[in-house]
């Protein structure tokens, strides 16, 4: 457990992760395979948006209001990891992304709960997200040949973005190495039960991606921002 409160701006990466993943999940609205999943993904997106707003509120003195932070920053100012900005792909792709991310976000919030007011609440919300992703990973991985193949393909494609999750975030007093080990054990366990193979490719280093925390993003992120920020930028000050 950490004893030091997060420094100013240290929570920005957490907030940007939540906002960007919320936006990606929102893209499923009207497209999910069944109505229940439509609601599930929208609910998860709402939890994440709430977390982002709560964290942005704490950064208002440094960065301005939440609309300014979300809609008026340029691509290089966002500190989200590259995993959350990856396009939804098919449902299996989205679920593997959900598993990889929530299995990271949940224990991270749990570790921050003594020092970050939002974290205890968010830890229980993200535990539910993680469980949802696990259940789908098991069903899809251990489902039909087609669902298995798609889920494995998603895992192989997204693996390169997972190493970045454990790069220390400046100002957050967290045992990153321990968090990484816990995450890997968790993923190995779920994949084992789902009949999936944990990818062997590098998850960090020269051959992998992952510099979102430094403001370097992948190509799809620009298009995501264009869509997310368009309304606010075209109609400054617009309100409901």
């Amino acid at each position: 457990m950490t004893a030091t409160a997060p420094q100013a701006l240290a929570t920005l990466p957490l907030a940007d992760d939540a906002l960007i993943l919320s936006h990606r999940l929102g893209e499923w609205a009207g497209h999910a395979p069944v109505l229940e999943e439509e609601m599930a993904l929208a609910n998860i997106a709402l939890d994440l948006l709430g977390q982002a707003r709560a964290l942005y509120a704490g950064l208002a003195e440094v960065l301005g209001g939440e609309d300014e932070i979300a809609f008026l920053r340029e691509e290089r100012a966002f500190r989200n990891c590259q995993l959350v900005e990856q396009p939804n792909g098919d449902f299996a792709h989205t679920m593997v992304r959900q598993l990889f991310f929530s299995a990271y976000q949940q224990p991270l919030y749990a570790r921050l709960s003594p020092v970050l007011p939002l974290a205890a609440k968010a830890a229980s919300e993200t535990a539910y997200h993680r469980d949802h992703a696990e259940q789908w990973t098991l069903r899809l991985g251990d489902g039909t040949e087609e669902s298995h193949a798609r889920t494995q393909r998603a895992a192989d494609a997204l693996w390169r973005y997972t190493g970045e999750l454990f790069q220390p975030v400046e100002g957050l007093d967290v045992a990153w190495q321990e968090l990484a080990e816990e995450w890997h054990a968790d993923i190995r366990d779920v994949f084992g039960r789902a009949g999936l193979t944990v990818p062997e490719g590098p998850s960090e280093g020269a051959w992998s991606a992952g510099a979102g925390r430094q403001g370097l993003h992948t190509e799809p992120f620009g298009r995501l921002l264009a869509e997310m920020q368009h309304l606010h930028r075209s109609h400054p000050g617009a309100t409901w």
Binding site: V34, E36, S124, A127, Y128, D131, Q135, W136, R139
Partner: peptide
């Protein structure tokens, strides 16, 4: 007890898996 986690299937589920 912490959040009560429950199992899932596409349309129905009888036995909590967690």
């Amino acid at each position: 007890a912490g959040p009560v986690l429950v199992g899932l299937s596409p349309t129905r589920h009888t036995h909590p898996a967690q």
